[in-house]
Simulated assay, not measured.
Amino acid sequence: MTGPVLTIESLNVHYGTGAGAAHALRDVDLTLRRGEVLGLAGESGSGKSTLAYAVTRLLAPPGVITGGEVHYHPRGGAPALDLLAMTPAELRAFRWQELSIVFQGAMNSLNPVHTVHSQLDDVLKAHRPGTARAARRARAAELLTLVGISADRLGSHPHQLSGGMRQRVMIAMALALEPEVVIMDEPTTALDVVMQRQILRQLVRLRRELSFSVIFITHDVSLLVEFSDRIAIMYGGRIVEEAGAAEIYRDPKHPYSEGLLRSFPALRGERRELAGIPGAPPHLAAMPPGCAFHVRCGKALAPCGERVPELGSPVGEGARRVACWLHAEAAV
């Protein structure tokens, strides 16, 4: 891995306006390095999908980006592109060509009345209008084969495919133009464990062959430990911990990270008792003072309910960042 391919700085998102607005993202700083898989984990409502849609400028109303910067860094040392300043025409050319997204519900993302070929062909026609029809069909067949689906399923409609096949069609569509960055928003949530592992193995192989970078969003930390290079944990619209996947698994520093890991059974080693996190995530329009997690935390200190701990800046490639008063001195 080399330099950054995507940088997010002080990103803020609100849903709604006025006193009742929900502050969904709060000063999020994150860097995706070229060629890496960055896992993004947290409970529902922590801001993971909002971050994905804000970065790609796909936020639906009443979502509004109220501050921050998102920059894409092309290969070859070309100047960084400001995604939040792009015009609609520039965004249309940029999406799928340089950055693509795999949405959470494959059945809802695919058009039920069009064939797989038609939907793959639309992407190729929109971004490569000079490509001949036969070449586009050959590329569509190649994409299906790439994700482990027989090319003879090009004529199938989404309802004629299994859940795992539909999800792989979405991955094929995201890779159609060989983008540098692929954002995957819980792509395996609705699938059984066996199919999850098959798709993850496909993704590992594809990343190795095509050298793209991935932001992989899920609530299942156990998936990220196996698949990611780094993991960022989100809670209440903030990043509360970021470190290498092995570091997070072996030694989580933030009590919330520890709680997420204890919520899933270990695949190897000794059996351990599962323990959920008490309480529920905070309402984004009425966040508690101080650290948002302190009302659910069994290790809360006096400052936790008064001041928000800073995440700090990473030092070096494998640096850990943690926003917790238990580790205030280590949060560098």
Rank of each mutant, 00 (worst) to 15 (best):
E69K: 15
A89M: 10
W96E: 03
L91Q: 11
G77M: 07
P74W: 04
S100H: 12
R92N: 07
F103R: 02
G105S: 15
Q97E: 06
W96S: 06
R75E: 14
L83A: 14
Y72D: 01
A93P: 05
V70L: 10
L84Y: 05
A78T: 08
L84R: 05
E69W: 11
L84D: 09
R92K: 09
E69L: 14
E90I: 01
L99I: 13
A80L: 02
V102T: 01
G105N: 15
Q97D: 07
L91N: 09
F94N: 03
Q97H: 09
P74M: 04
T87C: 12
L81M: 13
R75I: 11
G105K: 14
V102C: 01
E90V: 00
L81G: 05
L99P: 02
L99C: 07
Q97F: 01
A89D: 14
A89T: 10
L81A: 14
H71L: 15
M86R: 05
M86V: 00
T87I: 11
R75M: 09
G105L: 13
P74K: 03
E90A: 10
V102W: 03
Y72G: 00
R75N: 08
Q104W: 04
L81T: 11
D82L: 06
E69T: 15
G76I: 03
H73I: 09
W96C: 09
R95K: 04
H73Q: 07
V102H: 03
A80S: 10
R95M: 05
G76Y: 05
P88Q: 10
